[in-house]
């Protein structure tokens, strides 16, 4: 959820109360912030509004691609950790940045697969693999996921979670698509726990066939 100035003409979309009734944990973010200073203020307002110290830090000064500014994101995260927040850092799929964020004390890193809302999938896959392999904090693949198969792929690789909005919200049937993502996440996670078979550039027979055919043909 994003913090916004209320409409001075009154009224609101009254979304808090129905969500509270579901008993879910509401996660505020700093969407709209263009600098670390703005993100810190948004986090403090969100904490006061919702009574939670969880905050997803997003700092994207560029409105065309909404890519996170790494320096402002890092500075905001480091300060918010000092102020006692549980920080979830939306960031580029940059293994060095993710490592620095983890060292600064964030609770999770949220590297992007592709620009927000683009539905282009895991375009940063080689870097996501490094981040997942090396991260000391949970990894949530965020942004760009457009299909359930991409969520499954993320969890299969060992990501701890995915963050999905547009792919569900903009589907013809959002409820059905949400169910598809749930199944995909479960399949991906089970696949990860089961352990993927290693890749091979040549065929590997699954049954012993060296002698059988040759001997039968004699």
């Amino acid at each position: 959820m994003a913090i916004k100035r209320v409409d001075i003409k009154g009224g609101s979309d009254d979304i808090i109360l129905p969500l509270r009734k579901l008993g879910v944990t509401l996660m505020p973010n700093t969407s709209g912030a263009r600098t670390a200073k703005e993100a810190i203020f948004a986090a403090q307002l969100s904490r006061e509004a919702l009574g939670t110290d969880w905050i997803k830090v997003e700092v994207h000064p560029d409105q065309k691609y909404l890519l996170p500014d790494p320096i402002e994101t890092y500075n905001a995260c480091a300060e918010l950790v000092k102020q006692g927040f549980k920080v979830f850092a939306y960031c580029s799929a940059d293994p060095c940045l993710c490592k620095s964020l983890a060292e600064a004390g964030v609770s999770a890193v949220m590297p992007l697969g592709a620009p927000i809302g683009s539905a282009r999938g895991l375009e940063t896959l080689p870097f996501l693999k490094i981040i997942i392999r090396e991260s000391s904090v949970p990894v949530i693949v965020d942004a760009g996921i457009g299909a359930p198969s991409e969520a499954a792929k993320s969890l299969e690789l060992g990501a701890d979670a995915v963050m999905v909005n547009t792919a569900i919200a903009a589907a013809n049937d959002p409820v059905l698509m949400a169910a598809a993502f749930r199944s995909a996440c479960e399949a991906g996670r089970i696949g990860y726990e089961a352990g993927l078979a290693g890749l091979s550039s040549t065929a590997r027979a699954t049954s012993p066939m060296e002698k059988f055919l040759a001997e039968a043909m004699k």
Partner: peptide, 10 residues
């Protein structure tokens, strides 16, 4: 006085 509220989305 500035008054803020939360809306769905990111």
């Amino acid at each position: 006085l500035d008054v803020f509220t939360l809306v769905a989305g990111g």
